[in-house]
């Protein structure tokens, strides 16, 4: 069963897989690009998202707006699941 999609579950996936590492606390509304998330980190993130939530991200989904924060990602994923 793929995991539930919430801003917190996306955030914990990001932290668990060290997609970004930060001395400052990271919340669901932190701008991840400002913390240094680059296209390489996003590739890792896509792999983990597909594994955990069972949702395939298309190249068209891959925009800054969709990936800037954990809550934005959760929203995209929730829309794609329905």
């Amino acid at each position: 069963m793929p995991a539930d999609i919430t801003a917190d579950s996306v955030l914990s996936l990001i932290l668990e897989h060290q997609i970004i590492e930060s001395a400052e606390p990271v919340t669901a509304s932190t701008d991840l690009f400002a913390l240094g998330m680059d296209s390489m980190a996003m590739m890792q993130l896509l792999l983990h998202i597909e594994d955990r939530f069972g949702i395939a991200i298309t190249p068209g989904d891959m925009t800054r707006d969709h990936f800037a924060t954990a809550s934005a990602m959760a929203q995209l994923l929730a829309e794609k699941r329905t």
């Binding site: 296209s39 996003m42 590739m43 896509l46 395939a56 190249p59 068209g60 989904d61 891959m62 800054r64």
Partner: peptide, 14 residues
Amino acid sequence: DEPLRLRTAALIVR
């Protein structure tokens, strides 16, 4: 630009 770089990253993952 950034959109093309991000799209390309997604293509490579797929």
